[in-house]
Design a binder for these strands. Sequence first.
DNA 1: ACGTTTTATTCCATTTTTTGGAACTGATGC
DNA 2: GCATCAGTTCCAAAAAATGGAATAAAACGT
Lengths: 270, 270
Amino acid sequence: MKPETKPEIAKIDGDTPALRLLSLLEIIAEKDQFFTLHGLVEETGLPKPTLHRMLQQLETAGMLQRDGDNRHYGTGVRLRRLAENLLLNNTVQGARHAVLGQLVKEVGESCNITALSGNEVLYLDRVETQAPLRFYLHPGSQVPVHCSASGKLFLAQMKPAQRRRLLAHVPLERFTHNTLTDLGLLEEEIERVGSTGYAFDDEEFLPGLVCIAVLVPAAKGRSNLGLAVQGPTMRLSREKALSFLPALREAAQSIAAIDAEATPDGSAYA
Amino acid sequence: MKPETKPEIAKIDGDTPALRLLSLLEIIAEKDQFFTLHGLVEETGLPKPTLHRMLQQLETAGMLQRDGDNRHYGTGVRLRRLAENLLLNNTVQGARHAVLGQLVKEVGESCNITALSGNEVLYLDRVETQAPLRFYLHPGSQVPVHCSASGKLFLAQMKPAQRRRLLAHVPLERFTHNTLTDLGLLEEEIERVGSTGYAFDDEEFLPGLVCIAVLVPAAKGRSNLGLAVQGPTMRLSREKALSFLPALREAAQSIAAIDAEATPDGSAYA
DNA sequence: ACGTTTTATTCCATTTTTTGGAACTGATGC
DNA sequence: GCATCAGTTCCAAAAAATGGAATAAAACGT
């Protein structure tokens, strides 16, 4: 008797067809690989025609895209744009923004919340310092993963295979004298970042700009939110930046708490 | 008679309730503020009870969240997490996109990844050149097989019977002076393409647009992914296009490697 | 080249869900 | 208190989802 490909943990739930479709999207969103109709059938336990109809619906709408062989599906442009807009425009969500504002007051430097989008780091929200000398980087802009503090944090928590795939094809473009353009050195740095739980950007992207970042802890699984303080070298030394760590961690915790508290008690969404 | 406030540009579309719900999410995703039922009614023109039900549904599922006063809605944790996961895990598209971007840098012209979808060639992804003069063709659009470089490559690798079946049902529509509308001539061209391993589109679809394409090699069987460089005749001669072949082939190889890694091999894909 | 398997797709009668005009409720304001 | 405005509930007709079974289309093996 063979291993009996058992697990088949059904996960699709929802009281209405539309919610079941969203539930399916959640399963899809967790994949970092292409998927097939057959695979989903095994994974969810749903009848094949039902799943087929759902996928077909999503494909016609441009939410999914069939890849090459007509068998493997991946996310479509429309779905990705939806996701980006959702994250991007969520900023006036007040609570997070308020925490950011508070942090800026405490440390006296510009702070921002970041997320990984594709192979770049996306600025979700940002509060500028009051100091006259400052870098202006607006929410919505993107920076490469390999030369930003948040980016290195995101890389550090990925599964090795996932990280390798991303790094293998993203050219480690040089922006400044300090940019890590060597894969080996970058891996070393990422490991350091992973073990210490914070990351520096020591003028690796823009000359004169230093940055220290931590992850916003997630209730479970990986986090896709980073929190960072940025400032000009002129004002912000490495030591001073390090001294902000406690405040940074506390703020990250607050943001995590906001998200956690906003979750209907215990059973998450049900 | 007063100005009659009539911005009311309905935007919700979709052939099925579930897609209409996604369409609603898109509208919501574009907001950077909380929103109300009434506001959405005015914005979309949908009946109040209908929208109410939709919002209620999304709220119960944890996708939306009401803001204290029970009147204003904002995005819920579950929806945000969905968006985060979508972006976080699209490393495949990210990696492919990076390869495309790199190729564009090398050759200085717009490049795209294509797939055969039904009887037409589908643009999966595209990166535009920086040059000011350019054709704008977005991902998701489709072009006929008989007058596109990628299309001819797809045809060339088909079994003759398969190709005949496809061509029998696709009228060889004329788009430009150079379009191959004669089946015999097209067969000749396809044979040439098959033996050389690359294909030209010499203003056969759009006047002034030339294109050279290769196939992304597949691990097994036929490939259904094409990689192409496109440019205006003004800048891109046939000779120059030919000189891009090595870069094109190398990029195709990279994409093949990415896909190989991201394709659930045989069975499980978790 | 041909039969075998695997996987995708279509069919369709039944069940479930959506739809939206109208009526109702509750809050706010004057 | 009455007017106003927004949110909510009702419900019968119309539309859509469901999934077992049948079919079609590739991929595979010989």
